[in-house]
Design a protein around this nucleic acid. Sequence first.
DNA 1: CTTTCTGCAAACTCTTTGCACTCGT
DNA 2: ACGAGTGCAAAGAGTTTGCAGAAAG
Lengths: 143, 143
Amino acid sequence: MKTRRTRQLATIHEIVATAHDHPTAEQVCDRARRRVPRISLGTVYRNLQKLEEQQQVRVVHLHDRPTRYDGMLQEHDHFLCERCGMVADLAQSREARPNWSRLYRAGYRVRAQALTFYGLCPQCRRSEERPSRAGRDSAHQQD
Amino acid sequence: MKTRRTRQLATIHEIVATAHDHPTAEQVCDRARRRVPRISLGTVYRNLQKLEEQQQVRVVHLHDRPTRYDGMLQEHDHFLCERCGMVADLAQSREARPNWSRLYRAGYRVRAQALTFYGLCPQCRRSEERPSRAGRDSAHQQD
DNA sequence: CTTTCTGCAAACTCTTTGCACTCGT
DNA sequence: ACGAGTGCAAAGAGTTTGCAGAAAG
């Protein structure tokens, strides 16, 4: 079962690798259609899964929201703004490591870890503090 | 809109508060039926949501698996065994805090954080090392 | 030519919701 | 009696899958 280089796979890979906004599968699909008009959401999911297995994209699971995909391949953490939906990459807290080795000594084997912070991004915080301006929802998030 | 003390709500609360296995909504429903036979899954979801809002239960979101509910009210982290599905509570890495204040200084406001480790629990690790014994799946998980 | 991949639509899983009825207060 | 809560079944969102035909190697 060797993986074939299809236009769909290449397109999806490039989109996720160069996007900086952690798109959802549906957003990846929309963007991919600009280049492969008849691409289907099923194909997008299948290829994202394949890329994940090959460690060419990372998956970001967020509580209650659709899964998002990330081209940043180094281990890192995330911040989700619950107001505008923006996801920021955070340098990994090297402090999580001690926990890792504590688990190891207790007999656990850790394959992966996910640390996500939930709250308000600086922009949204500002508009909350000055309740006068800016719409309540999906404020300044691109695409 | 004042909350009423119904038999369903009390039952669900008690089940989650005393369970140590992080049951899913469906498991909570099954267990609740032993006491309230006609309780429905919809009611379970509605009440779990209510309890969550009142901070009487915690929600544990796991990648790709149904959401689980936790009666442990202090902040803590989780370990998911990807083989048997068991979830362990971990004392919170106080090390996550530095990250918290770094974010604060950058203008973010953190409302919550979730740190989950994924891997093998000691029991499952042992059976992987000695591939001879023990079934491949849902090994030693209770209920 | 063989085998993987694709588009499409249907299926699935988990969760939420509308509605008429029930039960706390 | 009033209105929040319930059971039920249907709807919803997100994701997966079966299949016949397309295309990579």
